[in-house]
Write a protein that binds this DNA or RNA. Structure first.
Length: 215
DNA sequence: AGCCAGGCCTGCC
DNA sequence: GGCAGGCATGGC
C-alpha cells in the first residue's frame, strides 16, 4: 500500500480538529516543552498550576523565581530540567522576540525553526510543534506515535527525523497547517486509542483493514 | 506493582 | 553520526 493513500485515510478518518486543547500561542509553546516524554494528563496538571499562579504570560514567567516554576510544573515530571528549559525559552522570547512568540511568523519558517533549535532544551519535535500548533505554520510534526504507527503499518522508516517529516509532507494531499495538524492528531489518536486499548475507531472507513495491523 | 509517557542533552564510541 | 543513560511525576 502506498503512503499517500494511508495518509489520506488517516486525515479523513482519524484527524481531530482542535486537537491541541489550547489556542494561546504562548501556552501551547510552554506545553510543547512540558510534554517532552511525558503523559499529557500530567502536562494539564502543570498547566493548571501555572494558570493559577498567573504564569502563563511571558513576562511573568520570565521573572518568576526558578523554585516557583519548578513547584508549579512538578506534576509534568523532569521538573528541574524543564524549569530550566522554560527559562531558556523565555530568555529567548523576551530578548529576541520582545516577549511575543508570534513574531516568529514575520521571518522565513526555516529561519524561525533554526532560532528555536538554538534554544537549549528545544529539539526538532518541540520546535516543529511550536511552529505548527502555536504559530499555525505549515510543517509536519513527527513523534513517537507517528513512528510507531507507520512502522506497524509496514513502512520501513528512515530513523532520521527530518527524513520522516519530509516523507510525510510529500505524501500529504495538502501542504498546509490545517492538514498537517489533522495528520499529526490522527497518528496520535490512532496509537493511543487503537494500538493501546485495542478498540477500533475506524470501523466504517477504509482504514479499518489496516487498523488490524496496528495491534 | 511495575512499566511507561506527545524528548532532549551529554558523553561516550 | 549513532546510541545508552539520565531526567521524575502520575496514569493505568
Amino acid at each position: 500500500m502506498d503512503l499517500e493513500k494511508i495518509v489520506k485515510m488517516l486525515i479523513e478518518c482519524c484527524g481531530v480538529e482542535g486537537w491541541w486543547p489550547s489556542n494561546d500561542p504562548f501556552e501551547i509553546s510552554v506545553q510543547a516543552i512540558l510534554t517532552q516524554n511525558t503523559n499529557w494528563k500530567n502536562v494539564m496538571k502543570a498547566t493548571k498550576n501555572l494558570k493559577e499562579k498567573g504564569l502563563i504570560d511571558p513576562k511573568r514567567m520570565y521573572e518568576a523565581p526558578l523554585e516557583v516554576l519548578e513547584d508549579a510544573i512538578r506534576p509534568a515530571g523532569f521538573y528541574k530540567l524543564k524549569a530550566k528549559r522554560l527559562k531558556e525559552f523565555l530568555e529567548f522570547v523576551m530578548t529576541r522576540l520582545d516577549g511575543d512568540i508570534t513574531r516568529l511568523r514575520n521571518i522565513p519558517m526555516e529561519d524561525a525553526r533554526n532560532m528555536l533549535l538554538s534554544v537549549h532544551g528545544i529539539g526538532k519535535e518541540t520546535a516543529d510543534t511550536i511552529l505548527l500548533f502555536a504559530l499555525n505554520l505549515p510543517i509536519m510534526v513527527v513523534d513517537a506515535y507517528t513512528k510507531r504507527v507507520l512502522r506497524r503499518l509496514g513502512f520501513d522508516m528512515p530513523n532520521n527525523y527530518d527524513e520522516i517529516r519530509k516523507m510525510l509532507e510529500k505524501a500529504s494531499p495538502k501542504k498546509d497547517a490545517k492538514t498537517y495538524k489533522l495528520l499529526h492528531s490522527a497518528f496520535d489518536e490512532l496509537a493511543k486509542n487503537y494500538c493501546k486499548k485495542k478498540t477500533p475507531i475506524c470501523s466504517k472507513c477504509p482504514l479499518e483493514k489496516y487498523c488490524k495491523k496496528l495491534i
